[in-house]
Structure formats: structure tokens, C-alpha cells
Design a protein around this nucleic acid. Structure first.
Lengths: 314, 314
DNA sequence: ATGAAAGCGCTAACAG
DNA sequence: CTGTTAGCGCTTTCAT
């Protein structure tokens, strides 16, 4: 495996000249540039990133931490982020490592210098040490850490008004209540404001729960609220669960679903959905973390608009 | 940030002793071990992986290359692999980077020493240079590269016999035909053998296609085969598409679906499915690549049994 | 059992 | 514009 000194030797120059040539920093004479280019080609030289990493004390690696990669929203997000990172280019920094919520793993990766930056979609408590590297969150509120989110309040309000406009009055809400400060609570805020301002009854189910329990929760919800006219569900899973349970009871309940992530796989029912712009959220997250990595100070939240998409369920 | 020499100084020993202490290689006296342990604690020392990486010329990073991370099968696989990797432990080597099929990216990562091993689920043509590092494939056949797959032939045969046993005679098959040698072609082999041995008509659709076209393809398939009794679909998406299209035509067609990956999100219909044991495939893939990394020679394929799960669609 | 020393491949002052 | 030099933090002979 040829190294930079081999190239330098072959081209008859010093290795710093080769380094400059490689990085475009500093000047290299045309003549030398040419010789170096040839040497590189002949030797089939590829820079060894490990050397640069050590020297620069950077791993050229970003980590994405998700609660559950197999969840359609998170896998879409991860996919979009990976794509955005690739497109952002840069000689190196083309690696995205995926992590699940786990005790200590993130901390170790950080302290051992294996990752440069962190994108958090989890709602797991954070160790302080993690905070020492550039970080951005999705939805989650952590001190002054930049947060990318969607217009949860406005989108929810719009959906609820839509249902109201259709004449529904017993309008429900089902969703998981995060254990840590998060922008997604704005969806429930919108619901509460909505029922208050229209003098409607609060028919919401808003609690902490685990992925996988959606079906049971939806069933319990319908049992305790037998006379709903329509529901705003905060995830595709809840929407499907509600749809199914309501169908088994008698009529399919009008439903608006957050996300609408599964349309590529499921054609029916086509839910009326509040579609988060995952691509844009990923791009903004990346843009922010790259800025942070570049030394810029960033803080506060960045809001991405949500798309209301009419389907068949409401 | 404390380095190994700081620890050595504080403990009053040489840095090689600290290194030995850290790696458990070679001997270090009880007395020194204790002093080193204290120094590490006091300094809050964490080894910088970058140094080790350069020295050992290893990145402690594995790459997983998938066609589409948002596809339920692939995201489940990635999740399982990440979990298996974490559980395999090892002081370092806890990183999994996710890559999409893309021109040149893999090659660059390899030549720049940014990944040590590769798990391939894609059907993209491979550059030769990529083959220079340890690699394992899922389903795909590439020379002597170890391949993890499921018992595609037997599982398909069993499903087809099941349909036959139910009295169906006009049994169809729909699936994508990979462009490169792959174990999944065994599913179609099983179908062809099945219709031949039972003197049935070959009613299969088996062509190359793109993700996202399932619905249109299914519709075309039903148009050209209006009198099917039942179908074996090689993916959840095809199954859903068929289900939907057949429903719109008149009767819901009996369907058996490969994968059954979406049961966590969709409760209805519950497809009768051939469920691949993704966790086990991921574990085997990891076990194999770690063995390869450890210098073992491995080759040939490793077959994981598929589960036949009765649902409501057949 | 241990320390000194060399060196992995690269970048970045610095002096020319 | 360019070469020399000095490390980045770690592992690993090799003497002792």
C-alpha cells in the first residue's frame, strides 16, 4: 500500500507538497502538481484516512441515535440523513454510524474520539459527557442544543379544524407522551387549545407507552370512548390500530394520521395524513451539525413545515 | 485530554506498561497495575481509538450496504445487525456504518482504510477493489464470498404445497428477478419445480423491477392472469399490492407473502407469511465477518430456516 | 516484568 | 512555492 512518502519520492518532491496538493491548501507549482498527479496515478495511491484522523483528531464520523431503526419514521430519517451526508460530499466525512439507545455506548464512542458529531432522535436521558461534542436533536428539547422539528402545533391545529369543518364534534386524540421535553408535545397542546376554544370535550389519550403496544392502547381507548366522531393519531401505527379496531367494532372511524410513512408499502387504507418532511428535516439536521463542526455557534429550533395530505380516512 | 503518557507519568511507569495493562497483553505486576488503575481513574483517562487505529491499521468499523434502508426488511436487518455487533462487545469495534448503493463510495471507504469489513445486501455490481476486505453477503452469490441466506427453496415449496393442499390449482407467483446471481432465485426455482411436478400451468411473473413499482406490476399481473386461485408473493409489498388490487376487482385473492415484516405496524390483513429469521441471519453474518476479520478462512453459504406463519390470507 | 525507541500516515509550522 | 521537522496517541519489538 503506497503512502504519501512513496508518492513524494516518486514525484521527487517533499511529502508536505504532496499533502498540500491533496488538500488544496497552500500553493503547489504547476510542474510539481503534474508530477505528483502522475505519481499518484502510477502508484494507485489513496490517502489513508487513519493518518489524517489521528493528526487532526477527528474521526470523520457522525452518529445517529434512534430508538428503533425498524420503525418506519426512523428508518426513513436515517436513509435521508445518509443521503444528505453523501451529497454534502467532502473528501472524507462520509460515514454515518447508526446507534440504538443504550447505556454507555454513546459516551464511550465520544470519549474515545470515535465520533465527531451526534444526531439524536431518542428520548433517552443524556449523560453530560455526551454533550461535549456537537449535537443536534430531532424534536427533543435539550438545553440550548439546536433542535430540528416540524410545525407540530400548526399542523395539528389545521387537521383538527379540518375535522371540525366536516361536522365532527366528538374529536379524539391518541398519542404517546414523551418522558423528556420534546416538541411533539405541541401536538397535544394544539388539541387542548382546540377543544377549549370550540368548547368541546377533551377526549384525548396522551400517555407514555412502548412501541408495539399501539394496538392494545387503541383498543382500550375505543372501549373507554365508544362514541367518537373522529380521531387525530400521532403515528401511523396508532392510526392503523385505530382503523382496525374501529372496523371490528362497527364503522371505520375517521382518522387523520401523523407521518404517513408507509404509503410505499401499504396502499389501503390511504390515511389522511400529516406528512413530516423527513428529507428536509434530515438536511437541516446535517447542515446544522456541519456548521457546528465548523465552529459556528448554533442554538434554538428550526421548524420544517408539515404537509396535510388528504386520503381516504377523513 | 489525558493521553497514555500522562497516565504513565502519573503512575510512574513506562507507557508500554500502560498499554499492556490496557490490552491485557503481556504481563504487568500487581503493584504497577494498581498504580496504573488509579492514575487512569484520577485522570479520567480514556484511550483515544484514533491512535490505535493508525498503529494497527484498522478502523474498527463495519459497513452495511443496503439498497434502501427504509424498506422494512432492510431496516430490520440493519437493526438486528447493529444489535448483534453491540452484543458481540469487544473493547472497540462497536461501529456499524450504513451505506446505500452508490457508485464509488464503498470503494473509497475501502481504499482509504475507513472500513474493515463489509456486509452486502445489495445487488449492485461490485468493483474488484471492494473484494480486498473481508466481506459477507446476504442472499447474493459472489464467487467464494460467504453468503447468509434462508432456505428459500424449501420454504417456497412448502408454501406452494400448502396452497395445493387447500385445493387451489391455478397458483401464481410474483417476484422480482435479481440482475446478479442470488439465492432468492431459488424461490422461483421451487415454483417452477412445483408446477412441473403437479402438471400445473406456469403462472409466474418473475422480472426485474424497481421498488415502488409493486402496485403497478401487481395490477398488470392480475390483468393478464384474471383467473388465479392463489399467489405466492416474494415480498410484503407485492402481497399488499396484490391484496389491494384483487379486492378492487372482486374477491380478495388467497396470498402467501414472503417476509411478514410489517406486522408490528399493520394489523390487517394479517398475511400468511414465510418469515425469514432476520435476527439469526444478522447474527450469522456478523459471526462470519468477525471470523474473517480474525483471519479464519470461510466460504460457502449458511442457511437459516424460514418460519411458515399462518395468517388470514391463505 | 518493564522501558526506550521506532514508527503507523498524515498535517502544519517554520525556515528557506 | 517547497522541504525539513516535529509530532498526533498508540502498540510493539528488543534489550534489560
Amino acid at each position: 500500500m503506497a503512502s504519501i512518502v512513496d508518492v513524494a519520492k516518486k514525484a521527487g518532491v517533499g511529502k508536505s507538497t504532496v499533502s498540500r496538493y491533496l488538500n488544496g491548501s497552500g500553493y503547489v507549482s504547476k510542474a510539481n502538481a503534474e508530477k505528483i498527479g502522475e505519481a499518484i496515478k502510477e502508484l494507485n495511491y489513496e490517502p489513508n484516512s487513519l493518518g489524517r484522523m489521528l493528526k487532526l483528531n477527528k474521526s470523520y464520523t457522525l452518529a445517529l441515535c434512534v430508538p428503533m431503526l425498524s420503525h418506519p419514521f426512523f428508518s426513513k430519517f436515517a436513509e435521508a440523513l445518509e443521503k444528505a451526508l453523501y451529497e454534502a460530499g467532502g473528501e472524507d466525512l462520509s460515514k454515518l454510524v447508526i446507534l440504538s439507545e443504550r447505556e454507555g455506548q454513546l459516551e464511550q464512542l465520544v470519549s474515545r474520539k470515535q465520533i465527531d458529531g451526534l444526531i439524536i432522535v431518542t428520548h433517552k436521558p443524556l449523560e453530560e459527557s455526551t454533550l461535549s461534542i456537537p449535537m443536534v436533536t430531532i424534536d427533543r428539547v435539550v438545553g440550548k442544543v439546536p433542535c430540528i422539528t416540524s410545525d407540530n402545533y400548526e399542523a395539528s391545529a389545521k387537521a383538527l379544524e379540518y375535522l371540525y369543518g366536516k361536522g365532527y364534534r366528538r374529536i379524539g386524540f391518541i398519542g404517546g407522551c414523551p418522558k423528556v421535553p420534546s416538541e411533539v408535545t405541541r401536538r397535544h397542546d394544539a388539541y387542548l387549545d382546540f377543544v377549549a376554544s370550540h368548547s368541546l370535550e377533551d377526549l384525548s389519550w396522551y400517555q407514555d407507552f412502548m412501541h408495539g403496544e399501539e394496538c392494545r392502547r387503541a383498543d382500550e381507548y375505543l372501549s373507554s370512548h365508544p362514541d367518537l366522531d373522529a380521531v387525530l393519531a400521532t403515528s401511523d401505527s396508532f392510526a392503523f390500530a385505530l382503523y382496525r379496531c374501529s372496523l371490528l367494532r362497527d364503522k371505520p372511524l375517521p382518522i387523520i394520521a401523523y407521518d404517513g410513512c408507509m404509503d410505499d408499502w401499504i396502499q389501503t387504507p390511504r390515511f389522511t395524513s400529516l406528512v413530516q418532511d423527513i428529507d428536509q428535516m434530515a438536511s437541516k439536521a446535517l447542515e446544522t451539525i456541519l456548521a457546528l463542526l465548523g465552529g459556528e455557534k448554533r442554538t434554538g429550533k428550526s421548524v420544517v413545515p408539515t404537509l396535510f395530505r388528504k386520503g381516504d380516512t377523513a
